[in-house]
Amino acid sequence: MSAPARSRETHRVRRWLRALGGVAAGITLAALCMLAVVMLLNAGRGPDAGISAHSGLLAAVAGTLWLAILTAAIAVPVGVGAAVYLEEYAPRTRAWRFLASVLANLAGVPPVVYGIAGLALFVRGMGLGPSILAGGLTLGVLTVPRVIANSRRALASVPESLRWNALALGATRWQVVREQVLRAAAAGIVKGCSAALVRAVGAAAPLLIIGAASFTTFAPVSPSDPLTSLPTQIFAWTARPQAGFPALAAGASVTLLFVMALIGLVLWDIRRRHGEARR
């Protein structure tokens, strides 16, 4: 092939690549925009007055906040602690590697499976019934492996030489971890925890399985109150074909996204401040 022909050809390949990339980006953006528009339009239509009075949206918001707090209280300390142990302390023996890989792969097991396990363990085994506490424990147990996986990735990205230099100055393992490794990995750990938490807050399937109420008008005031949450409420309303409910579900979806964004914002702020403290 002559040189000019060849350069024309590359030119064409480049144009094609760019055009394809633009199309892919356009499809993605269009899908996201449609999603947003559909939710907002349907939510804006507003439910019939008769339904909205006892719709229990407030109860669902309160339930979701309870669940977020319980999940974080369980999954963050246990998950981050286990991740630090596995990355920084555990001997690299076959047994430990096996345990670590089991925990890593449990992060890929879908929430619905944890719902079935939660039904046997918490609702029936511990006799908690379909309560907020049973829901929080279930979400906590399913979030722990995800927190471990994300935190381990953050810890593994800290260069080994930082640990060596700190150890060589006579620091003990915990001093190295607290003063250097955790500070260097803090931003990544907070980011990983928030990703896992936000996903848990949006999970409906495990809560449906352990028996979330589809109709609650009382906002839960303690963890032993009946389980209710925004995602399960959205599901219940979406599954009802009667007029008015789709709009209610859309309204609840927008509320859920708003609550998740709020949680995300708080975590982002923590991350930002940690990031500044490092400098």
Partner: peptide, 24 residues
């Protein structure tokens, strides 16, 4: 822009996607 869009898509809860599938 695309990173933000992809991140947004990944944080939409499944039940909201389900609503979108059924009603749109």
């Amino acid at each position: 822009v695309m990173n933000a869009a992809v991140a947004a898509l990944s944080s939409v809860p499944a039940v909201v996607y389900g609503y979108f599938a059924l009603n749109f």
